[in-house]
Amino acid sequence: MTDAATLAANRLIGRRVLLELWGAGKLEVADELYAPDYVDHVGRGPEASRVVGPEGIKQAVTLFRSAFPDLTYTVKEQMAERDLVCTRFAAQGTFKGPFLGAAPTGEVVRYTGMDLNRIRGGKIVESWVNYDALALLQQVGLVPPVKGI
């Protein structure tokens, strides 16, 4: 069983990832919060691409923040148990730079999601992130909206 102080510290790590790293673009936070062997389980199947280590997460943050430089996150809910922290969030930012081949529109985009982080020794070692990628891709014009939904 994990003690209350460790669970509180782990929840703070989950908040800092969204608010300081992704939301404020403080890339140095990645070195503080992510283990060198960190793996973000993105994509499908065992051969899917992976974000690895603090440098990998910095690249992902830079990609998003170059397209949405005023990106902000709001933590909606958090739960922590054992070595896992789940954070439900809402994000928004103005589409001011190219993103995955889409030209910027100057429009505000919004999406929601959840991070599940495994924390060991005060560092994130694994993440599983699910966010409403369809809504994001529709808002930047890469996927047409579905009528009637």
Results as ranks from 00 to 15, higher is better:
N130C: 15
V52L: 11
K58C: 03
P54D: 07
A24Y: 00
G23P: 02
D70H: 01
V75I: 05
T87V: 14
N10G: 01
N117Y: 15
V61K: 02
T6W: 07
L7R: 10
T62S: 06
T2G: 06
P144F: 03
L63M: 13
L71I: 05
V85C: 08
A24S: 07
E81R: 14
S127C: 09
K58F: 06
M79N: 06
R44E: 13
K147E: 15
V140F: 11
P36M: 08
E47S: 12
I124E: 08
Y131N: 05
A30K: 09
K76Q: 06
L136Q: 05
T105G: 14
V17F: 09
N10E: 04
L142M: 13
D37L: 15
E55L: 11
K147R: 15
N130F: 14
A9D: 07
T105P: 04
G121A: 11
A135G: 12
G148A: 15
R118P: 03
T112P: 03
L63K: 10
K123I: 06
N10Y: 08
T87H: 11
A5F: 13
S127D: 09
V108A: 10
R65S: 09
R88Q: 15
G122A: 04
F68W: 07
G23V: 03
V39K: 03
R11F: 04
P104D: 04
A4M: 14
V125Y: 09
L71H: 03
M79T: 12
Y111A: 06
R16Y: 08
V85M: 03
D115R: 03
